[in-house]
Structure formats: structure tokens, C-alpha cells
Simulated assay, not measured.
Amino acid sequence: MARMHTRRRGSSDSDKPVADEPPEWSDVDADAVEERVVELAEQGLSPSEIGLKLRDEGVQGTPVPDVSLATDKKITEILEENDAEPDLPEDLRNLMERAVRLREHMNDNPNDHQNKRALQNTESKIRRLVDYYRGDELDADFTYSYDTAKELL
């Protein structure tokens, strides 16, 4: 499938291999993994950063290749159970950070038309995501603007 705002095609055959149980070399207790996930979330890491940290550093020196195989829960589910979930969904937060950076760049460089278009595309993605999350993870009257994004970040 093609990308929305570029002429490039998407990547094919990029799925992870199917696995039903964690590898035998990673014998980490599920409770220890959950404690580590909550600890990393309290340090301010996003769910994807937590997954990378567990993959690289692990728990008690043993890497955790896949949290959902080790605990039968996703990282976001673990965070919800322990009331440690972030205030904004991660994809929306990343897009807002990009939009704030692009807006500040546009204030310094008003004739940069390529980045002006990139800002328009990013803000349209944000508006679509806000519509998707409105009511569940965002307030029902939440609307995106540069000022609200700057305030939330």
C-alpha cells in the first residue's frame, strides 16, 4: 500500500516471525518484567522506548525479546493496569512534537515551502488522529492547535 503524503510505496514482507512462546534463553519472570515496565514508565519513557530498553538491557541481565510473549500482555496494557499510562497516545505525541518543531522552523524560515507542506501534512495527520482518539483517550472537546500542542509538550 502506498504512503499517504509521499509517492513512495510501503515496505512489504516486514512482519516479525510468528512465535507462540518466548525463546528458551529468555527465562524472565512475568512479574519482574511488569515491575521493570512500570519503573521505566515512571522515568518518563514511552512504550516503544520501554520495549527497546527491555530488548537491549533486559530484566536482571536477561534480555526480553518480546514483552507480550513473556507476560501475555502488551506494554500499554501493563501501564493501564498500574495507572502509569501517558496522558497522550504515543503516536499523537510524536506527531505533535514534529509539528511544533516544524512550526518553529517556519517562523525562522518563512520561505521554506517544502517544510511548509510537511507542516500541513503533519497537522492533517494530527487532526485525523485526534478525531480517532476523541472521547476515549482524549477529552470530547479536545481540538488541536499549535498553542495546545506547545502547552501539552
Rank of each mutant, 00 (worst) to 15 (best):
L102P: 09
D141H: 12
R101L: 09
V130M: 01
L92C: 14
D131T: 10
Y144E: 02
Y146L: 04
L138G: 03
E137D: 09
N111V: 01
D112K: 08
D91R: 13
M106S: 11
D141F: 10
Q114W: 06
P86H: 04
L119R: 02
D136G: 13
Q120N: 09
R128Q: 11
N115A: 08
Y133N: 04
H105I: 00
L95F: 11
T148M: 01
Y144M: 10
V130N: 04
N94P: 01
R93V: 03
H113N: 05
A118D: 10
F142G: 07
L129I: 04
N109I: 02
D141T: 14
G135W: 07
M96P: 06
P110V: 06
N121G: 01
N94W: 07
L119Q: 06
D147Y: 04
Y144A: 03
T143W: 02
K116M: 12
M96D: 06
H105W: 10
S145V: 02
N109M: 11
R98M: 10
E137L: 05
V100T: 04
A118G: 00
D131V: 02
R117K: 15
V130F: 07
L95R: 14
R103N: 12
L102N: 11
R103V: 04
E104W: 07
V100N: 00
S124Y: 05
T143G: 08
Y133L: 01
A118Y: 03
L138H: 03
M106K: 05
P89E: 10
L92V: 13
K125H: 08
L95C: 05
L95S: 10
N94A: 09
H113R: 05
K116Q: 14
A140Y: 05
L102F: 13
D131H: 11
G135Q: 08
L88A: 05
A149L: 03
K125S: 15
D108N: 11
Y146T: 00
D91Q: 10
T143C: 05
R93P: 02
P89N: 04
L92F: 13
F142T: 15
A140N: 08
E104K: 15
L138I: 06
K116V: 01
D139W: 08
R93E: 13
R127A: 07
R128D: 13
Y132M: 06
Q120W: 12
H113D: 05
N109E: 15
Q120D: 13
A140I: 09
E97W: 02
N111E: 13
R117M: 10
E123S: 08
N115S: 07
D136R: 15
D112F: 07
K116S: 12
A99P: 06
L138C: 02
Y132D: 04
R98Y: 02
E90V: 04
V100S: 03
A99H: 02
D136N: 15
L92E: 12
D147S: 12
D141R: 13
A118E: 09
R134K: 14
D91A: 09
D91E: 14
E97K: 15
A149M: 05
R93S: 12
D139G: 11
L119H: 07
T122N: 06
E123P: 08
S145Q: 01
D91K: 13
D131Y: 03
